[in-house]
Design a protein around this nucleic acid. Sequence first.
DNA 1: CTGAAAGCGCTTACAG
DNA 2: CTGAAAGCGCTTACAG
Lengths: 333, 333
Amino acid sequence: MRDVSEAAGVSTMTVSRVLKEPSIVSEATRERVMRAVEELGYVPDFSASSLSSRKTNFVGLILPTLTNSNFADTAQALADALGQSYQLLIGYTLYQASEEERLVRSLLARRPDALAIAGSEHTRGTWYMLRRANIPIVEIWDTPNDPLDHAVGFSNFAAGRAAAEHFIARGHHRIAALGSAVEEDVADHRGEARLRGFSAALCEHDVATNLIRRVGRAPVSFDHGARALAGLLDRNPDVEAVFAVSDVSAFGALMECRRRGIAVPDCISIMGFGDFEIGRQCEPAISTIHVDARSIGVQSGELIRDLLAGEGATTDRRIEDVGVSVIDRVTTR
Amino acid sequence: MRDVSEAAGVSTMTVSRVLKEPSIVSEATRERVMRAVEELGYVPDFSASSLSSRKTNFVGLILPTLTNSNFADTAQALADALGQSYQLLIGYTLYQASEEERLVRSLLARRPDALAIAGSEHTRGTWYMLRRANIPIVEIWDTPNDPLDHAVGFSNFAAGRAAAEHFIARGHHRIAALGSAVEEDVADHRGEARLRGFSAALCEHDVATNLIRRVGRAPVSFDHGARALAGLLDRNPDVEAVFAVSDVSAFGALMECRRRGIAVPDCISIMGFGDFEIGRQCEPAISTIHVDARSIGVQSGELIRDLLAGEGATTDRRIEDVGVSVIDRVTTR
DNA sequence: CTGAAAGCGCTTACAG
DNA sequence: CTGAAAGCGCTTACAG
């Protein structure tokens, strides 16, 4: 910047103004400065700018994994909604609480202007750091009972309940569900909430809940669905309906049925979750619960922008529920 | 930091040392400082640190899209290989050259210590900025003819050639390929290179290349494959073999065959690219060309770490080819 | 519309 | 093993 100001024969303050608020600089000066910028190929140093303006234009984003198209959609939508002036700082936890805590610490050291974080279950340490950070925090992909700050998501419990009610309304009795195990450090809390909602609905209708299986480590995979269903069928060949906590798993289960020559949905109904493109495209198309992942990104992005533009009017806590909807396709009857 | 140093009764220099190189501080002092850090919940400010040490510990990563599990794998593997001390700054271009240029500019303003960027075709402006940036640049997912700096990838041309040779060896004659269109600003250069390799191999074996279709905008989708194949079949119902530039597209094509009652591979052989999990899990499993996306991430991460640890010995340009391999599954005969 | 001074929170490079 | 001084490259808050 020094080089540019010398080349243009102005102070560094003027260069700074030309770059940030060109309108308040006279046209002649502005052009002289711009020419120097071009010639020298000058790229401003944002970390210096951040330090002195106390704004980094970073927004932190913590997700369980990037290799899940719904989370990737949220990330992309959030980036789009924030616009070009913000840079996303993405971290993924692989569903590990310890990793989440480490990530939060290292992201906060970069002093993001705001942070979006998947889920509402955090370790004590994570919770404490987030509260102290003194920036807007948005919990996404769930509707917390006791939000840390703002939230944009939906009720995973309600989503699980909806799946169970769908099966019950179709007259099924031997109803199963497939999810991942909850371990000390590794847990898919949202998938687990769906299973709990599912279980609660079965109880209310006096349907047995003993076919709800929690196997393997999060995140679930195609293979998870195949194996989990195989394990289920070996013990309970008479299951009528299966809910999987993710379409990825549901697709694996569907392929396992095909390998075993079990007709879907004639012998077994399958419902997934997440409305991934694979479930829409495969044959037979998988019934699922749709979540608007892009909408979560867009709404949290807009919320963050409002909060950072902040006239003080928008300081009250905001909780947005984007809802879910059951999509009845071919794998359920 | 000032607060911590006052609470512990030492200079800020000592606090800085405790945090960066604890071993050179006496144990008594170190403990006093650590206690103050804990009590105050102090989180160091990395942007100040970056400014004064001239190291940001950022690594930039530019990819076409995050919603592609191979690129997401590369991103995750790169993050893992770099380790906890580096933070990835991810941007995605959606295959747009103009967006790439904008992204490069805004990432460079964050002064990353190194940058990994997908592909080897860049605008003049992008190329110039990257050269001037004076940091290690790694072009990934391709083997450039004229590398900017380092590269870790494979030859997309060779991958396309391999697909064509596979079909030719099986005695096919009416051989097609499906890719996306190359527009002014939007282009999948790597997919296009695969089509060119494919075309070159057909020419060498005197097979007609008129069934190579470039339709729609990158990135390809399930729907792209379905439509592109439908368009092809409407005009050339006698095609024997189809190569799609991505498994995603190949899967769409496979579903289109099923809808039309065309037996695969008996009537049409299908080969994809990328070895996505969907092709492995679906029925029939899709033959494909495997690329080790994680390996690209790991190798570029290790290269970057070496370069930044840099004893000067590792300063020569490095070009790594991770190769590809044809996986012959069920959709080809 | 433009500039001189001070400072953001750290680290480098010394000195002791 | 510890500290005082100077400075990283910008912006804030003034003054003119």
